[in-house]
């Protein structure tokens, strides 16, 4: 299994990922699945600065995700897949990339969003995506860093 962790994070690559999760799951690759970044080479080049010789950073669009994961598998790397929203995570699953657990790290606050944890705020469509993921057997957990306890998101309806 080339994917050590699948994570939803509004900020994609940042300290919690690079200093927290990368060493914790012993990953050596970050796969950023995001359609907006594909069109923005400047932002990609800044994000690549967060990598190092033992951490390769790869970008792909949602449509390319399956091929990107196969390539990571071929290189025998352990990767963390990052996407910005639960909807994107559901799309990754729909494109044939199988994963059993989803980590939700940060979803920024916005008008009409409901607080799940101090740094995760759900919009109505996030509930739908999470529900859809759970119906397909994905365990969803809200957890910022490996150092703090996770909060599992209950099956079926929404309870915590």
């Amino acid at each position: 299994m080339p994917l050590a962790l699948v994570r939803v994070d509004s900020r994609l690559i940042h300290g919690q990922v690079v200093e927290g999760w990368v060493p914790h799951v012993k990953a050596n690759c970050l796969l950023v699945v995001n359609d907006d970044l594909a069109a923005n080479p400047f932002l990609r080049s800044v994000m690549e600065l967060a990598g190092n010789p033992s951490l390769r950073i790869v970008f792909c669009t949602l449509d390319e995700v399956s091929a990107a994961v196969t390539e990571i598998d071929r290189r025998a790397e352990r990767a963390i897949l990052l996407c910005a929203t639960p909807a994107d995570a559901a799309r990754v699953l729909a494109r044939g990339v199988r994963f059993d657990a989803l980590n939700i790290g940060n979803l920024h606050f916005g008008a009409g969003r409901v607080e799940i944890t101090p740094s995760v705020f759900f919009a109505p469509e996030d509930y739908e995506s999470v529900d859809a993921l759970q119906r397909q057997g994905v365990q969803v957990e809200v957890r910022g860093t490996p150092f703090e306890p996770g909060k599992s998101v209950g099956g079926g309806g929404f309870e915590f």
Partner: peptide, 15 residues
């Protein structure tokens, strides 16, 4: 676009 990756570099270096 910058805050995440620049934060990652800074967290790794400073903290």
């Amino acid at each position: 676009g910058l805050m995440g990756s620049i934060g990652a570099i800074g967290d790794a270096y400073f903290w």
